[in-house]
């Protein structure tokens, strides 16, 4: 592990809730680690589980998929499908050997800036303890 390694987390955030939640954390001047790179998506169900594998391939140390709380989906049912898909995908990725701390699925509403900041902090700390991810990683 190099001395200056810092965790890199790819976050897929639903534009209607989690992305707005992250925005709120920013405008409220909450502090959280700069380890997360957010990718704005129209709905958490836009995230194909292959995106997660691709992120690990390309050097992510952690992946976060964040969407609206069940019942709050802008498109009514998108996050219910997310829940089914990622219930399987999360277990499956772990079954292939990725540590569970490296990949999380969470519900974050547009009002939960504090929760978003806390989540990033928690994940960053967990991943710092694990060290850089080498699994599924492409050799450059």
């Amino acid at each position: 592990m190099s001395v200056d390694w810092k965790p890199k987390i790819v976050g897929f955030a639903c534009r209607w809730c989690a992305y707005a939640g992250a925005d709120l954390a920013g405008t409220s001047r909450m502090k959280y680690p700069p380890s997360i790179r957010l990718v704005r998506i129209p709905c958490s169900c836009r995230v194909d589980p292959s995106f997660v594998v691709r992120a690990f391939q390309r050097g992510a140390d952690g992946v976060l998929v964040a969407g609206c709380h069940p019942g709050d989906c802008h498109y009514t049912t998108g996050n219910y499908l997310t829940r089914r898909r990622f219930s399987l995908a999360k277990r499956f990725i772990q079954y292939m050997g990725i540590e569970p701390e490296r990949f999380r699925v969470e519900w974050v509403s547009a009002a939960e800036g504090g929760r978003f900041a806390g989540l990033v902090e928690e994940m960053t700390e967990d991943i710092r303890k694990l060290g850089p991810n080498r699994k599924m990683r492409e050799r450059l």
Binding site: P70, R83, R84, L88, K90, R91, P100, R104, V105
Partner: peptide, 19 residues
């Protein structure tokens, strides 16, 4: 199973899955 859902589905990533 992945083409439908129910409102009270579990969150399979919690518990044993380490979250």
């Amino acid at each position: 199973p992945l083409g439908e859902f129910s409102y009270d589905d579990p969150e399979g990533w919690r518990g044993e899955a380490g979250q």
